[in-house]
Design a protein around this nucleic acid. Structure first.
Length: 282
DNA sequence: CGCTGACCCTGACGGC
DNA sequence: TGCCGTCAGGGTCAGC
């Protein structure tokens, strides 16, 4: 279930598979997703080449000449790319897009989402009018990219001054930093030795330097490992991500801390499970 | 601004 | 085997 690394892995694989291919057909299940499917805009794209596939926040962006199709995977979404024409839709398949290469080869993108918290949104290039696409997609996608150049300890330090919110919830706020969800927030805070309930504004610059490095490190590791999988995340080639095996605190309450051996604790912050070591996170 | 709870859904899992 | 409660990694919104 997707956080930034899963979305990045998905976007990269689709980029490899169907960039430059033209949209041939679109099928939708008709089941309600988070937003109404932009049928009208997509119907205009038949025969139009897909220029590229990227990621902003937790959105997969499919770029067409006239704009972007922004796909959110929600809690349980995945985008699979199959060779050949669309196979019969399975339960919880909601969007199926066939693409055709210049040499008439066909590949199919299948959007599968049991919980239907995901969405497809159309962002017209004209309407964007130079506005950064994250801002258009909502406050939750407007924050800084944690893998970007400008994200570093100084940025975290400066933007956290005066904030009394617990660091974990502040990190997970998409209007501050995008893509750091529950798992990676827990893991990065563990690596940096910072207690999740410490107020964001009370953390020193050196500790933020460390945290910024750890966040980047953890996200990059997860991307290399093909994404995390607690339950059912799978990448576009159908393989399961492996990062889940590397979680050091997430989902490990009661087990010994890999650093000091004390039992990992679980608490609820902002209605989300939080895992940490009370001994070595301060 | 910040915090809380409710809500959108289905599936997996543990206890009985 | 089956029923039931609980939980799940995301995000938005209303209300205080």
């Amino acid at each position: 279930m997707p956080e930034l690394p899963e979305v990045e892995v998905t976007a990269r694989a689709l980029q490899q598979a169907i960039t430059g291919w033209s949209l041939r057909s679109v099928w939708v299940s008709g089941k309600k997703l988070r937003h109404p499917f932009p049928r009208g805009a997509i119907d205009q794209l038949r025969g139009v080449p897909l220029m590229g596939i990227g990621r902003r926040a937790k959105y997969v962006l499919m770029e067409f000449p006239s704009g972007y199709l922004a796909v959110h995977l929600g809690m349980s979404g995945s985008m699979l790319c199959a060779h050949g024409k669309a196979p019969p839709a399975k339960l919880h398949d909601h969007v199926v897009m066939e693409f055709e290469s210049p040499s008439s080869e066909v590949r199919t993108m299948i959007y599968h989402d049991p919980r239907r918290f995901g969405s497809f949104q159309w962002c017209d290039r004209q309407a964007l009018h130079g506005t950064e696409i994250g801002a258009v997609l909502g406050a939750g996608a407007a924050g800084i990219e944690p893998l970007g150049q400008s994200f570093n300890g100084a940025w975290l330090f400066e933007h956290s001054r005066g904030r009394r919110t617990p660091i974990k919830q502040w990190l997970m706020d998409g209007s501050v930093v995008v893509g750091v969800g529950n798992i990676y927030a827990c893991e990065a805070l563990f690596d940096a030795g910072i207690h999740p309930s410490r107020k964001a504004g009370s953390i020193s610059r050196p500790r933020y330097e460390r945290l910024a490095v750890d966040i980047k490190k953890i996200l990059l590791q997860a991307i290399e490992g093909g994404g995390s999988t607690i339950q059912n995340f799978q990448g576009p080639d159908g393989t399961a991500g492996r990062y889940g095996q590397l979680h050091r605190v997430y989902g490990r309450s009661g087990q010994p801390c890999p650093r000091c051996g004390r039992a990992i604790r679980r608490s609820i912050m902002g209605q989300r499970s939080t895992f940490f070591c009370h001994g070595c996170q301060r």
